[in-house]
Design a protein around this nucleic acid. Structure first.
Lengths: 90, 90
DNA sequence: ACTTATTGTTGTATTTCTACAACAATAAGT
DNA sequence: ACTTATTGTTGTAGAAATACAACAATAAGT
């Protein structure tokens, strides 16, 4: 028999730019975690795409980085920022 | 004794423009719910600020309305769109 | 007055999110 | 070789998000 799914269905994984944004600013996960008041392991889960952040957390990250949420999280893969700025190969 | 809080703390309530956006488009909660594949009662909970959407749900709403998430949900109260467009009283 | 659509309320079930702890694995610096 | 910082892994616990159902309260239309 087919079990009817109750509760929250598993949403597709989410792409994120957290590692890039951290690297640009020289932040460890612990640094970022402290800045937005979460456990440092939560940052790890987010970077690996193991779960989606709450909207509250996403808004805090966006505020911290001074970016729109869509620049940090996306349902579709990100293209590298470096390419966006300098263009692709000639 | 002071019980140490484990799990997710209750984030502050979130302001939203869902009723306005629905009204502008003449959509019932059921209509919107169907469009983004959630239960119609979930829209009710969101409109009343009784809970925060997942980022996944917020992204689907933003995509549906063709707006940035920040135009739909905010930690600070929204000013009326009508005022934004036409300005305040003279 | 009747019907219908919309919204609110209450309750139960399940999954996800987040905290926290302990430890392994790397990498960097001394 | 030793220490330290950073990241990954595994496990437990508790709160929040969502589905679903049933019913009450309005409002609108006929």
């Amino acid at each position: 028999m087919i079990a009817k799914t109750i509760g929250r269905p598993s949403p597709p994984p989410l792409h994120n730019r957290l590692p890039v944004l951290r690297a640009e600013r020289g932040l460890s996960r612990q640094d970022l975690a402290t800045a937005i008041s979460v456990n440092y392991q939560t940052i790890g889960y987010l970077e690996r795409g193991e779960y989606h952040p709450s909207l509250d957390l996403a808004l805090r990250l966006a505020e911290y980085f001074n970016l729109p949420i869509e620049a940090i999280f996306s349902r579709t893969p990100f293209s590298p920022l470096s390419e966006k700025v300098y263009g692709g190969p000639a």
